[in-house]
Structures are given as C-alpha cells and as structure tokens.
Amino acid sequence: MMKVLQVKHLQKVFFPGTDNERHILKNINLQVEEGDFISVIGNNGAGKSTLLNTIAGTLQADAGEIDLVDHDVSKKSVAYRSRFMSRVFQDPKMGTAGDLTVMQNLILAQDHQHTVNLKWYQKKNDIPQYQELLKTLNMGLENFLDTQVKYLSGGQRQALSLLMATLSKPKLLLLDEHTAALDPKTSHEVMKITDDMVQKKHLTTMMITHKMSDALKYGNRLVMVQDGQIKLDVRGVQKNNLDKEQLLAAFE
C-alpha cells in the first residue's frame, strides 16, 4: 500500500516560554494509506484541528516531519501542499469566495497548480460539464452558475465547497467538522454526498467529527485524539465492531 501521508514525531507548542505555553500536539505519529477514510474524534481542544492545520500548512510544525506522497513538505507553503490535498472548513464561508460566481469558484478549485497564467479561465464549452457536476449535488445549483456564492445558503455553499475540494483530484482530502454548521437534515445530506464522493473517486480522507454516529458509520478507520496524542487507532473489522458505548468510554 502506498502511504499518502506520514506524520512523524509531530510537535506543536503555542506561546512557548510564556505563562500561556500550551503543548497541543505531543509527538504525533500517523500513517495514512491510500484509500483510507479516517474519522477523527476527540474532545474540544484535543488538538484535532491543530493537527489538520499543521498537515495543510496553515500552521508550521515546531518539530517532526510531514511526508506527503513520499516527500517532506513540512517547510512548504499552503499553496504548494494544496497540489496534493484539498480542504473543507467548518465555516461554509471559508471554503468559497463569496463575491465570485459558482462557476468562478469551480474553476479556481479545479487546478491547484497553474494558478497564474494568461489563458482565458472561462470557456463557453465547459458550461455543460460544470452543470453536470453540480447536478450530482442534488441542490439545484446547476441553475446558479453565474450567481455570486454569497447568495447561496450555508448548506449549498458547503456542498459546493465539497465538490470543489474533489475537483483537483487530491491525494488527500481534509474535512474539519464540515457538517457542524448545518441543520440536521442538510448536515445529513452533505454527509451522504461526502461518502458518495469519497467512494466514487476513491479519495483518501481525514474527517474530523463530533457526531459519534457519523464516526462509526463512515470510513474504514477511526482515530481518537486526546490531549494532543493519538489514543485510539482502529481500522476494518475492529472499527466495525465498535459501538457508541465503547467510544464514549474511551473518552474518559
């Protein structure tokens, strides 16, 4: 199996040397294999988002190494790492450019590498193809190609973010509580779309969630982060045999 991501001895300390010093990631080691769909759970403040942010590069690792598709990216920029990964944030506003149209957002998401060139970005012939893509979301977005994204609802915006995150064929997809800001019904729909996309495109995925049921239902692997360390890492049959009570017990 190819390793998509290898996190080695990762450390993150906020405000070192001050009274507020906080050791948030404590020697994290994690290997993500191609095709893994990992649910990441853990208490508030356990360091889940910090872990994902450090992988994505919005935070720099203080020590340790992050290998993406077999090369060290721990000193690389967010933009560089985005050639291999995509993200969906908790806040639907974060993942899309509100002043730009649905179409412009899709075009931006499609190519993470050639972002600066003098080619026309919008081609008339591409419209049907984008409409087809939007149709898969089942949210009527195919009629809003030229609408500015800020006029969409949170659920539509998040579904769009998710679609956008898959367009560049990422080696790794990072989801940070991406359904947390949605109402129960929409949240369920977006989770369903997520699973469909992950299955269909065989996306290697790390998904943070606070919904135990989602964590149990989706994915082939479950990782629990507690106090900056990985406390539980189960996959396959072992994961399938877990139930809510056992998980809640593990939180203690």
Binding site: A56, T58, R83, S86, L100, Y121
Partner: peptide, 20 residues
C-alpha cells in the same frame, strides 16, 4: 486565470491559498 486568482485572493485569502 491570473485575474481570477487576483480577485479570489482579495475576496478570500484562506480559500485562495488552499486552492494553490
């Protein structure tokens, strides 16, 4: 595409860098 990247950067920096 250069112009689109410029507009995106001004509108949402996090999203833009996350898109390369």
């Amino acid at each position: 595409r250069l112009g689109l990247s410029l507009m995106a950067t001004g509108n949402n920096k996090e999203m833009s860098s996350a898109n390369g």
